[in-house]
Design a protein around this nucleic acid. Structure first.
Length: 877
DNA sequence: CTTCAAACGTA
DNA sequence: CGTACGTTTGAAGG
């Protein structure tokens, strides 16, 4: 512990700690809207704030390296030469971090030719001499040598920077078995890989300590090196010069001439305006109050509201809940606790009042009117709650705000959207959580009313942060879609167990037969589902040529097998492929079968925040990847049937919606003409590209331009195109050149859209949905090019998703308004499956066609294909 | 019991 | 060296 009578000097190695933070914190959670990475800055400042709060230094400074060149590299050119270049994403954060420190009035010290640790060593030495109690905070082990009775080292844990271990002389002795001053002698013997300083082979900490204790000092050990026996003795003698070099390099300079001495480092008041300014640019909301608190700065109320106390929670009776709601004005946040799909408890909160109640029929009756009204209701992840309320017989008016959806729109890549994460990010507070690992939790979880209160405050914060156009997407697309999805999930889709299980047995039998044949071919039984065992068979036993490399060996995937079959035909390959196909299909069928509910229907869950582009995803089970491509897959789709009480299924899909969006966004006259001509798209494009009449476009030509067109949307390269079409790269290149010569605006659009994204830091769909792309400016080519392809695709895929969502909820709403019993069941990105009630085909199909067709005004028509049938397979044709 | 990689289904 | 997803399996980690 520090002597309270003494002033405390805190000196920090900014570079090493920020670097650790950079690797400890996931970058996707710490990037600003315009793509600036902030994880290193945030992690460092967070650590520093904790440190200031805990240690209350009277004086402090942060030291940085100036460059990699120092007196050490002059002495030994290989010093740190093994270190890969620091990522530019990190380097770019250092000047900003220094600006932050300047705003916080914390001196930043750097000096050409010496490292940050030499600055720490000098300040620590001077400080101790001048009567300071010194705290050194560094992630470099060499600073252990600085520890004395007056100098304590704070060293970060392996994981990140949040936990600092305290090293005083006793702690160093305990951990390393030597006095702090002697630690560099151990390090000299053992070597330091991260500094590219090899030590004596086979000598680790244990041996080094043993020797040093035995001989008293490194010098004495080296003088007596010939007395050491065994292999290690020989190693020592051979590497004696390395050891001397290491020792000379790991000695920190304690007499660097610095512009400021310890006495000049007195803690000064922070520049509150500057701090607020820079933090807001970095989107640090939660750090601001912490800085003010730790530094004792007068927090102006508008900037740093103290964590507010939750209002007292009332527990009214059934009639009282309705009265409470009638009294409430403005937004009311709602949280429904759900057990077994039904409400078990419900909580409400406004800004200054909260109430909650157990669920009962009386309560339900009492609040039904309020729920059905258009009183503004705010939720976090409303969909499951809407479903529970609906199951309980309530009808719910419009949801005014959903914090989960808002948080996702703000940062579509942020993986967690639960309330706890949102509270952490947008309020800088912790949601009270019960410990799920304990039978009797020590801490109580938050109650529904408390959750509602947090929901309200998080929503306020998000409303402030969400750009206007993105807020529009939330209000005009996502919230109405959410309602439609809730109803679709509740409805489910009827699936025939009989059809599935018959097919499953058939496939099972077939798989067994093929497996036996395969075993016979190779003379042994292996697990045909194990890539590892298959590699043994293919590449060791059968000595087939090696395929594409994977992380763990060589690929045995379907394309690899096809390629092998072409070059080195072998019956096992065919048998394996057949076995794969049969078992995969069977597996899909089995999991579908297991998902059929008691009423014969499968209910999926659509994850509205499940993609980065704006698409939905479907889970448990995923009904967006039901096979369609192979002949047999029709039998699976045939098991999806029209339900009892309904007349038929309708499928409706957009044809080539992504290419149409491409035509719209690029404004390419040729492509627009293609869609307006009514001609088959690929035939039209093929005619242009190959310079023939549309009627003379051969199937091969059509296949090529089709692959090209679709590839464009994904950022395809000539290499990828040649691979997919199995043609020469030169031919693929030629194809691309011809394509772009005819459809030049497409290329121009794709180029400029990535460029715009690079400048803005994000892409935007037609409707204003954003997706950030921080990696577009990365110096790492792989990262950057991946980001470029994704950025190319995002506005196209995202706009298609927007359009489908708009069509979906409009159809859903219009069915209800028209009093139809028909209902939308499934959405598969560009397709809807609708269950048509008896006698409603004409009305319902008209609505579907119209709403899908006019969901967006593009410069090309939105073509909708509609099919009808008793099952999905029939309706899909 | 959890986590990862490979494989494969869809748009 | 083509985007966006979810699920199952085997294997390896704990």
């Amino acid at each position: 512990m520090t002597d309270s009578a003494k002033p405390t000097l805190l000196v920090v190695d900014g570079h090493s700690l920020a670097y650790r933070a950079f690797y400890a914190l996931p970058v996707e959670n710490f990037s600003t809207k315009d793509g600036q990475h902030t994880n290193g800055i945030y992690g460092f400042l967070s650590m520093l704030v904790n440190l200031i709060k805990a240690e209350r230094p009277t004086h402090m400074a942060v030291a940085f390296d100036t460059s990699r060149v120092s007196f050490r590299t002059e002495q030994y050119a290989e010093y740190k030469a093994n270190r890969s270049e620091t990522p530019a994403e990190f380097r770019g954060q250092i000047p900003i971090l220094q600006d932050c420190l300047a705003a916080m009035s914390i001196p930043v010290i750097l000096k050409e030719g010496v490292e940050a640790d030499d600055i720490l060593a000098t300040l620590a030495t001077e400080g101790a001499e001048q009567g300071f109690s010194v705290l050194v905070c560094s992630g470099d082990r060499d600073t252990i040598q600085l520890v004395t009775d007056d100098v304590t080292l704070l060293y970060p844990n392996v994981q990140g920077v949040s936990q600092l271990k305290r090293y005083d002389p006793a702690a160093v002795r305990e951990k390393y078995g030597v006095e702090p001053a002697q630690y560099p002698e151990i390090a000299a013997l053992v070597g330091e890989t991260s500094d590219n300083l090899p030590g004596v082979p086979k000598v680790g900490e244990k041996t080094a300590v043993k020797w040093l204790t035995q001989w008293g000092s490194l010098e004495a050990l080296l003088e007596n090196a010939d007395k050491i026996t065994g292999v290690v003795g020989g190693n020592l003698r051979e590497h004696i010069e390395d050891v001397r070099r290491n020792r000379s390099l790991n000695r920190l300079l304690r007499d660097v001439e610095l512009p400021l001495g310890p006495a000049d480092l007195e803690v000064k008041p922070i520049d509150a305006v500057a701090v607020r300014d820079i933090f807001s640019r970095l989107e640090f909301r939660t750090l601001l109050p912490r800085v003010f608190e730790a530094t004792g700065a007068a927090a102006d109320a508008a900037v740093a509201e103290p964590a507010r106390e939750a209002p007292a929670v009332a527990e009214p009776d059934a009639a009282g809940v309705a009265a409470w709601l009638a009294d409430a004005s403005g937004d009311v946040a709602v949280t429904v606790a759900i057990v077994g799909g039904l409400p078990s408890r419900i909580g409400f909160a406004t800004h200054d009042a909260a109430a909650e109640s157990n669920w009962s029929p009386e309560v339900a009756a009492s609040i039904a009117e309020w729920f059905a009204s258009d009183a503004p209701k705010v939720f976090t992840d409303a969909k499951p709650q809407l479903k529970a309320l609906t199951r309980a017989g309530l009808s719910v008016g419009a949801v005014a705000y959903d914090a989960s959806l808002a948080g996702w729109l703000m940062r579509p890549s942020f993986p967690d959207k639960n309330l706890g994460d949102l509270v952490d990010r947008y309020l800088g507070e912790r949601l009270p959580e019960s410990d799920p690992n304990q039978l009797v939790p020590e801490t109580e979880g938050a109650t529904p009313a408390q959750l509602a209160w947090y929901t309200l405050r998080v929503s306020d914060a998000l409303r402030e942060e969400l750009p206007a156009r993105v807020a529009d997407v939330l209000e005009t697309i996502e919230l109405p879609t959410q309602r439609a999805l809730a109803d679709m999930e509740l409805a489910g889709v009827a699936v025939s167990h009989e059809k599935l299980s018959a097919f499953s047995s058939e496939l099972g039998a077939r798989a067994d037969v093929v497996a036996q044949e395969a075993y016979a071919t190779i003379g042994r039984e292996v697990n045909l589902g194990s890539p590892k065992q298959l590699q043994e068979v293919l590449f060791d036993q059968l000595e087939l040529p090696k395929t594409r490399k994977t992380k763990t060996g060589y690929s045995t995937d379907a394309t690899a097998l096809t390629d092998l079959q072409e070059t080195n035909p072998h019956p096992f390959l065919e048998q394996l492929s057949q076995h794969r196909e049969a078992t995969k299909l069977r597996q899909i069928i089995e999991s579908l079968d297991a998902a059929i509910g008691e009423d014969g229907r499968i209910r999926t869950t659509y994850v509205q925040t499940g993609s980065q582009t704006g698409r939905l995803s479907s889970t448990d089970p995923n009904l967006q990847n039901i096979p369609i491509r192979t002949d047999e897959s029709g039998r699976i789709r045939a098991a999806f049937e029209v339900g009892e009480g309904y007349e038929t299924l309708l499928t409706a899909d957009y044809s080539q919606i992504e290419m149409r969006i491409m035509a719209h966004l690029s404004g390419d006259p040729g492509l627009i003409e293609a869609f307006n001509s009514g001609e088959d798209l690929h035939r039209f494009v093929g005619a242009r590209v190959f310079g023939v009449e549309p009627t003379d476009v051969t199937p091969a030509m059509r296949t090529k331009v089709k692959a090209m067109s679709y590839g464009l949307v994904y950022g395809l390269s000539a290499f990828g195109l040649s691979k997919q079409l199995r043609i020469e790269q030169a031919e693929a290149k030629q194809l691309m050149t011809e394509y772009f010569a005819r459809f030049g605006a497409v290329r121009d659009y794709l180029r400029s859209s990535v460029e715009t994204a690079r400048i803005e830091g994000y892409t935007e769909t037609i409707f204003g949905r954003r997706r950030p792309f921080p990696d577009l400016t990365s110096p790492n080519r792989v990262l950057r090019e991946n980001a470029e392809r994704a950025a190319l695709n995002a506005p196209i895929q995202g706009s298609a998703a927007d359009i489908m969502k708009i069509a979906l909820f409009r159809i859903h709403d219009e069915f209800r308004r028209a009093g139809l019993a028909s209902r939308v069941l499934l959405q598969i990105h560009d397709e809807l499956v609708v269950e048509i009630a008896p006698g409603e085909w004409d009305a319902a199909s008209r609505i579907v066609r119209a709403r899908m067709g006019d969901a967006a005004e593009l410069s090309v028509p939105l073509d909708v294909q509609i099919g009808r049938g008793a099952d999905w397979n029939e309706a899909g044709h």
